[in-house]
């Protein structure tokens, strides 16, 4: 076997191993937090999915309740379209979390409540290079 062939075999070998590796990790991630399914709130409620999921929506105005005993404990109502769902979250809240904020929560659904362990707010950053589309701003924002 000449060296050229040996190299071809070797290279194909490396690539195959890696592809298998990527495929394997994709189907059996070590950490359950590695993956989450993005679903609509409606689908989650209808199908009662109790796997790890990610939901997006708005925080319903006036729905944020912060526990009197532990300020980290909070619950709020997530609104997506007309569907609503109570979300419980007991970690540090992002600074931009407030009424009407657009949020993405990750966690698990159990008996009518969504227990989130991740809460992301829409990034207010208009900075980092190229963040938001201008069409996203309302002109009333400018008037102030």
């Amino acid at each position: 076997m000449n060296s050229n062939k040996k190299f071809t075999i070797m290279i194909t070998g490396v690539i195959t191993v890696v592809i298998f590796w990527i495929g394997w990790v994709s189907s059996n991630p070590k950490d359950e937090k590695a993956m989450a399914t993005f679903v609509s709130v409606e689908k989650l409620l209808n199908d009662k999915i109790n796997k790890r999921t990610k939901l997006g929506g708005l925080v319903k105005d006036g729905s944020i309740i912060i526990s009197k005993t532990n300020y980290l404990d909070c619950s709020f109502v997530l609104k997506e379209g007309n569907t609503e769902l109570t979300v419980k979250y007991d970690r540090t809240r992002p600074d931009l979390f407030k009424d009407g904020a657009e949020v993405i929560v990750t966690g698990q659904y159990l008996d009518g409540t969504f227990y989130a362990d991740e809460l992301q707010t829409k990034c207010a950053s208009r900075y980092e290079g190229d963040l938001r589309d201008e069409s996203n701003y309302k002109l009333t924002e400018i008037k102030t």
């Binding site: 994709s26 991630p29 070590k30 950490d31 993956m35 399914t37 679903v39």
Partner: peptide, 18 residues
């Protein structure tokens, strides 16, 4: 047909050996 998002643990698991 389902949107599955992957988090840092996934990337770490794949990329650490590489």
């Amino acid at each position: 047909g389902t949107k599955i998002t992957v988090g840092p643990p996934f990337f770490n698991q794949i990329n650490v050996p590489i």
